[in-house]
């Protein structure tokens, strides 16, 4: 054993917590940098902003984490969210609060559709979800009839819960998102099927031989991703009070980036759902902070890309010998 490892083990750190700790460290470091640049960053109002912006990305990320843990990928979450947002607005006008249930049902259906295409038709998940992305984008257009209309005032009461917040800096949106995250974490960590999803990502052949239902695990993973995307869609609709069919398109990659920054390895089998909270927080803080400290618009994308690369570089555990990183 090299000297270093013994030094670390004396401090009762093992490599696993080091990685978990790391995303927390990077969140704190970057927040301090922004805070120094402009004290308003940690103001009560900005915390409210951050947590509000964080919620949709977190929902996409924790759904995506399930699929990434399989070793697959889901590129359709953004469009499922857009479609869900439009569907909610349209249905709220017609059937009132029941619309929320219908939209969640739609999320489950979209997830299962991806699951069937990948598991039973055995299409690689990259291409399967890329195709369903196009399908749900078209559905969003059709549902909204091409008109990006605002919600009519008469359905605002169903949606005003989105604006509520507790002692002025924790929005209700974030509380709901946190509860969903806890539920996702419990499912992934403490239920049998959740454990199987992990196992499939780590060694699918062994899981199959051990008598676990590999197909059901894959279907569940895509279901959770679809459901997460639908909840994100609900958050968009509630936050923007509108049915804009292109609202979620750009959030797909951010969801994946948040999951990866939370420690989920793209080769599958490693990482935790709960840590996507830190990944999503990191992304939101970077975007929000750059506005608060007034980084010029043209430079924002460059800095976002650079910080993304730096965080991925720190976050990947490079001592994984022999692991063939695709």
């Amino acid at each position: 054993m090299q000297k270093e490892n013994s030094m670390w083990s004396k401090l009762a750190f093992n490599r696993e917590t080091m990685i978990k700790l790391f995303s927390l460290v990077s969140v704190i470091v970057i927040s301090c940098v922004f805070c120094v640049m402009s004290p308003a960053f940690l103001s009560r109002r900005n915390l409210l902003n951050i947590l509000k912006d964080l919620s949709p990305v977190l929902m996409l990320a924790c759904g995506e984490a399930f699929v990434l843990m399989l070793g697959s990928i889901d590129l359709s979450t953004g469009c499922i969210a857009s479609c869900a947002a439009v569907m909610l607005t349209v249905l709220l006008g017609k059937i009132g609060p029941a619309a929320y249930l219908v939209v969640l049902g739609y999320g489950v259906f979209a997830g299962l559709f991806n699951g069937v295409a990948h598991t039973y038709l055995q299409i690689p998940s990259f291409i399967a979800t890329l195709s369903t992305q196009a399908i749900w984008q078209s559905c969003a257009y059709l549902l909204s009839g091409g008109q990006p209309l605002a919600m009519l005032p008469d359905i605002w009461p169903y949606v005003n819960w989105g604006k509520a917040s507790f002692f002025e800096c924790v929005p209700l949106l974030f509380v709901v998102a946190f509860l969903v995250l806890l539920a996702y974490t419990v499912i992934s960590k403490y239920t049998g099927i959740g454990k199987t999803v992990f196992a499939v990502g780590s060694n699918e052949r062994a899981t199959w031989l051990m008598g676990q239902n590999v197909r059901l695990a894959k279907m569940l993973a895509f279901l959770m991703s679809g459901l997460g995307a639908a909840i994100a869609g609900i958050f968009f609709a509630v936050k923007l009070k509108s049915r804009i069919p292109t609202v979620g398109v750009q959030y797909n990659m951010l969801g994946i980036a948040a999951a990866v920054l939370g420690g989920v390895q793209m080769t599958g089998g490693r990482g935790s759902v709960f840590m996507t909270l830190l990944g999503a927080l990191l992304i939101t803080i970077i975007q929000n902070g750059m506005n608060v400290i007034g980084v010029d618009g043209l430079w924002q994308q460059i800095i976002f890309g650079a910080l993304m690369l730096a965080a991925i570089f720190m976050n990947s555990d490079k001592d994984h010998k022999g692991l063939v990183v695709k």
């Binding site: 454990k195 196992a199 780590s202 060694n203 052949r205 062994a206 031989l209 490693r270």
Partner: peptide, 12 residues
């Protein structure tokens, strides 16, 4: 390859 999942702990 087929009997154990090396990333998991013994009790898992």
């Amino acid at each position: 390859a087929g009997g154990i999942i090396s990333d998991f702990s013994a009790y898992e």
